[in-house]
Design a protein around this nucleic acid. Sequence first.
DNA 1: ATCTTTGCAAATCCTTTGCAAGGTT
DNA 2: AACCTTGCAAAGGATTTGCAAAGAT
Lengths: 143, 143
Amino acid sequence: MEGALKKIRSSGGRITKARRGLIRVFEEADKPLSVKEIRRSLGEIGVKTSMTTVYREINFMVKNGLVKEVNLYPEEKMYESAYLVHHHHLVCEKCGRVEGVGGCRLAEIEQEMYRKRGFRVTRHSLEFYGLCVECNQGVGLMT
Amino acid sequence: MEGALKKIRSSGGRITKARRGLIRVFEEADKPLSVKEIRRSLGEIGVKTSMTTVYREINFMVKNGLVKEVNLYPEEKMYESAYLVHHHHLVCEKCGRVEGVGGCRLAEIEQEMYRKRGFRVTRHSLEFYGLCVECNQGVGLMT
DNA sequence: ATCTTTGCAAATCCTTTGCAAGGTT
DNA sequence: AACCTTGCAAAGGATTTGCAAAGAT
């Protein structure tokens, strides 16, 4: 929260209800959110805003490094806090649940990209799709 | 080409100029294409069509397993042939070039997701972003 | 001949922008 | 007081849909 407020101030921005609300929404979110979900979440904590403001403020927060875009679905942009530690996503294609997983092991592969192809990797995006524990119950079991 | 035509027929579809053209475009593409690029590529091989048809036929081809959606940028859907062998993408953030890389080593990690969390991974999407060989020239060198 | 595909125009949906009013510093 | 942010209405784009004409089998 503090770091976020500081970034806003140092970019010449003001601390408004919408921004406080957004910071809180992203702090409390346990998965990436779509623009609509963000607006709904704001509403749930008593911050009423227009879609216009949500769009504008999300862009502001992305530009200032408070929030990151996440590429889960080709249909819809999702956003999550930029303060989360690096992780990947497990997306259940049945119920839609999204979990984060830490323990990234791509560093070695990235170095190899540089050695073998001269491509200097600065970031990556990795998502797994499938069935979560609950949706997977009984699938493939011989009963 | 043959496999593709067969899939179209077996889904009750007809072999039209647009579809032949699309199959050729995807066979010859060396990177994922946006809807606009697809239309342009069609034009270049002499297949004039409307945007409407491009949208409709791409969706048809995705639904019938000829083409896959690729999640390179949150801004824009991209498409590539579903007949390519599994690969990931290297996206240069300076010049926009996109290369494919084979040699996926995520199988073990996927098994671990199942053992440790019960999540059954069926597919994944991995893209690397950074600077390609050419754009990387001289960067970081002490001259 | 029958059923599918095409392209236009219109409809929809999502996102951005201009601007006057209100909020923050 | 100066400057930033908000929300409305309107504009701009992208994608989808209805429908009559053209095309494929």
